[in-house]
């Protein structure tokens, strides 16, 4: 019996889809049978991030409305035998699926797969309610910005109200230089405010854009910092204890000056 994990955030553009793609790929690399489910109906993107946009025939709405069987809609990944994508519908609206249908779908996916990673749409409306309906655990993605943290707080409240307790936090796009000079909230600040458990931190990394351009999740790139961060997060999802990534920046001129005058 597998597990359904929903990746959510409230605010858009903080990296839900990138996180979903990397977690799913990471778990597949580790040998698990994984399905990625895009529930952002009308604004699908997980297919593009995975580089599978040309293979879509059926979508999630075709499955839930009985137009096709689950097996027909699943797209096999190019690189991994044990990784699949269930794409969102692009031409329908979010009410085309109900929470009840999502619960049924999740139950079916759990029979087939070790992990189903659900990419949730932004917002707190119907799409969000659908995405979390069949989930066993939830991951909340935020960036170190006020607006994203505020929305994450709202989402945590809604998840707890929906009895998806103990959601885990991923802090995405940390910029160590800015943290160091006190212009960006760090991990401790955000954890203090949101009061939930940390699943991992991902540094801002250009390689994410490059990997998305190519349709190859960064978790496969062993030279990318963000890839390393996602590999560690993947291991934590599997229940391993993994140390946090070292995000320290090398000493700058300022620090050396301060040390020289004996201020630190």
């Amino acid at each position: 019996m597998g597990e359904v994990i929903v990746v959510t955030s409230g605010k858009g553009g903080v990296g839900k889809t990138t996180t979903s793609a990397n977690l799913g790929t990471g778990l597949a690399v580790a040998g698990h049978k994984v399905v990625l489910v895009d529930t952002d109906i009308g604004l699908r993107n997980l297919d593009v991030v995975m580089g599978l946009e040309n293979r879509i025939v059926y979508d999630i709405v075709d499955v839930t409305s009985g137009n096709c069987r689950l097996r027909q809609a699943l797209i096999k990944d190019k690189r991994f035998e044990n990784l699949f994508l269930l794409p969102a519908a692009q031409t329908k609206d979010k009410n085309a699926v109900t929470p009840e249908q999502m619960r049924e779908l999740s139950a079916e996916l759990k029979q087939e797969f070790d992990y189903a990673i659900i990419d949730c749409p932004a917002g707190i409306e119907q799409g969000f309610k659908n995405a979390i309906a069949g989930a066993d655990r939830a991951v909340v993605v935020t960036t170190p910005e006020m607006s994203a943290v505020r929305d994450a707080d709202r989402i945590i409240g809604l998840l707890e109200a929906a009895e998806l307790s103990n959601p885990k936090l991923i802090i995405n796009r940390i910029r160590p230089q800015m943290v160091k000079r006190g212009d960006m909230m760090d991990m401790a600040d955000i954890l203090d405010i949101l009061a939930i458990e940390l699943l991992g931190v991902v540094p801002e990394d250009e390689s994410i854009i490059i990997s998305t351009n190519k349709g190859e999740p960064a978790v496969m790139d062993h030279n990318a910092k963000a890839g390393e961060a996602y590999r560690r997060i993947t291991r934590r999802i599997r229940g391993e204890q993994v140390a946090l990534m070292n995000l320290d920046v090398p000493e700058g001129l300022m620090d050396k000056l301060r040390k020289l005058v004996g201020l630190r």
Partner: peptide
Amino acid sequence: NRMLGKESTSSKNIAKERLRLVLVHDR
């Protein structure tokens, strides 16, 4: 202040304080 390593004026502390207040009302 920054040269002296003081953080009180850093924008992250402003963000933290503002967030704390806004979340009290949100919650």
